[in-house]
């Protein structure tokens, strides 16, 4: 009997010993980080799209070489992530159509708000849209806040979608013909460095074949040949075609 009790004690000691393992007692990702990406020219939110900008976070309080973590922008030019580990971060808006900015170091904890002001490569100005039967005509001009070392300007794209979420990641491909061997090519190709001609030109893009009695959402996007080739957009306009 004694022996049995000894055995049980020994076994329970062994089990107790195994329980002496480390527990992960780090706090969960309980902080939120949000803010707006502000266009330095207009003072309003940058006209962008889902993922048109990435907010890159590196948690300095974790280690010296933290893996970057990205928060994609929302269509309205804001960003918001409610599952962030509290700590000190280096933060920079990147992978968007704006001049590179400097990173900032900030402490994120609770609900932290941080706005970033960026200088867009280009602004789409004097944007107009008009319907002509089943064709949508859009015109615009371009303005460059900074012209020194501005990468080559590629093209202006018309984007049309059936929902207000319209941009380079969400458009009806039959209305944007980007293959320049196709007779219906409807981008405004520029492929040139910034110059006085570009500054004074009114660009005109036509989208054919809209169906009758529908509401579409349209905008223009222009991009430059930087590392990311993202777009500077016009605002989104709703367009309703006449019923048949």
């Amino acid at each position: 009997m004694n022996k049995a009790i000894n055995g049980i004690i020994a076994a329970s000691m062994l089990l107790a010993g195994y329980s002496c393992t480390k527990v992960d007692n780090y706090a969960g990702p309980n902080a939120a980080f949000q803010g707006n990406i502000i266009d330095s020219v207009t003072g309003k939110n940058l006209l962008t799209e889902t993922g048109g900008v990435e907010i890159e976070l590196k948690q300095l309080s974790w280690n010296a070489n933290p893996d970057p973590y990205y928060i994609p922008s929302q269509p309205d030019g804001s960003f918001d992530d409610a599952r962030i580990f509290s700590g000190q971060y280096s933060v920079i808006p990147t992978q968007g159509a704006f001049w590179p900015t400097d990173s900032i170091v900030t402490n994120i904890g609770g609900a932290t708000t941080q706005n970033f002001t960026v200088v867009p490569y280009l602004e789409i100005t004097n944007f107009t849209d008009s319907l002509n039967a089943d064709s949508l005509v859009m015109t615009c001009q371009l303005m460059a806040p900074r012209t020194d070392n501005l990468p080559e300007i590629l093209e202006i794209w018309p984007f049309v979608n059936s929902t207000p979420f319209v941009g380079s990641g969400a458009y009806i491909t039959n209305y944007t013909i980007s293959d320049n061997t196709n007779v219906n090519y409807n981008l405004a190709a520029i492929n040139n460095s910034w110059n006085a001609t570009i500054a004074s030109t009114t660009y005109r893009m036509v989208v054919h074949g809209l169906l009758p009695g529908r509401t579409y959402y349209a905008r223009l996007g222009v991009r430059v040949n930087d590392s990311y080739k993202k777009y500077n957009f016009s605002e989104v306009v709703p367009v309703t075609t006449a019923a048949k």
């Binding site: 039959n174 209305y175 013909i177 007779v183 219906n184 989208v207 054919h208 074949g209």
Partner: peptide, 10 residues
């Protein structure tokens, strides 16, 4: 052929 293939002209 071009007319036929233009996505926008019915």
């Amino acid at each position: 052929a071009a007319e036929e293939l233009s996505d926008n002209l019915n």
